[in-house]
Design a protein around this nucleic acid. Sequence first.
DNA 1: TCATAATTTAGAATAATTCTAAACTGTTGA
DNA 2: TCAACAGTTTAGAATTATTCTAAATTATGA
Lengths: 151, 151
Amino acid sequence: MAREPGTGFTRQAAKDAPRHGAALARLKGCGLRPTRQRLDLARLLFRDGDRHVTAESLHDEVSRVGIKVSLATVYNTLHQFTEAGLLRQVVVDAGRSYFDTNVDDHQHFFLEEDGVLIDIPGETIEVSNVPVPPEGLAVDRVDVVVRVKRS
Amino acid sequence: MAREPGTGFTRQAAKDAPRHGAALARLKGCGLRPTRQRLDLARLLFRDGDRHVTAESLHDEVSRVGIKVSLATVYNTLHQFTEAGLLRQVVVDAGRSYFDTNVDDHQHFFLEEDGVLIDIPGETIEVSNVPVPPEGLAVDRVDVVVRVKRS
DNA sequence: TCATAATTTAGAATAATTCTAAACTGTTGA
DNA sequence: TCAACAGTTTAGAATTATTCTAAATTATGA
């Protein structure tokens, strides 16, 4: 493979450096060992803006690009990223798990017919009068899902 | 089996009549043929107030009482009841489906640690500023789930 | 460079749910 | 009352999403 004279990096690696660097920093930042598969997945996930993926969809995508990662690793990685606060799990479907790269406080439209999620910015919807939970319980999070249909 | 003289009903059937009648009426009211298993399930579900069940939990319950209904039928029935508007499906867990006998507009506490749902009356929580959905879509329903943890 | 612990992976296992095709039952019309 | 038919139930197989297992691989620090 062609190299930038004197750098020790391939041209592609040089081009990827910033992205790769960002992914690397992200992983290091939360104490996850930067393995090839975690870096590859992080780059795809965080490359351009907010995304919603399922394990299957991410695995398909990664595979189509020619990267070799097992489905088990995709599952592991999604869960580790979630625990590390890099992703947020969104429950809208009793059949499969969605993961959102936007971890800020926000809500979702869910188009059930296509399994598509659309972000609603955090400041938009106002939820008031959430009752005090029963004795011994504390509110962890308030999720709002606006289910939409084709009209 | 002992009979009430002259009635043509067993004592048990006589006692069950009102309940049974209610379940029967419910099924007839939505055009579902009143089979033995549908009547049994309806009686359990709607006997005393609001309930949250999963297919498994309902099947266990029905079995414990000595009623013979297959798990497949429990699934079928839950879906038919939902379609008929007798039940409402609640999505709070990416692993299993909950069904709620309360079909009025209301929301839920969800105790993730135990898989327990608690109703929040419909007038309690106020959701405002729900944005207009993207072109071609219309709001079907707004779901609020208050996730709680033991404190 | 090596040893070690963390990670990945193929494939088996599990869990929830749906499907299939055969047996059964509620309803209807004669 | 009863036969016939459509609707329903069911056991068990199949499917789907996910997790587990144990062996192979890899990142890291000395």
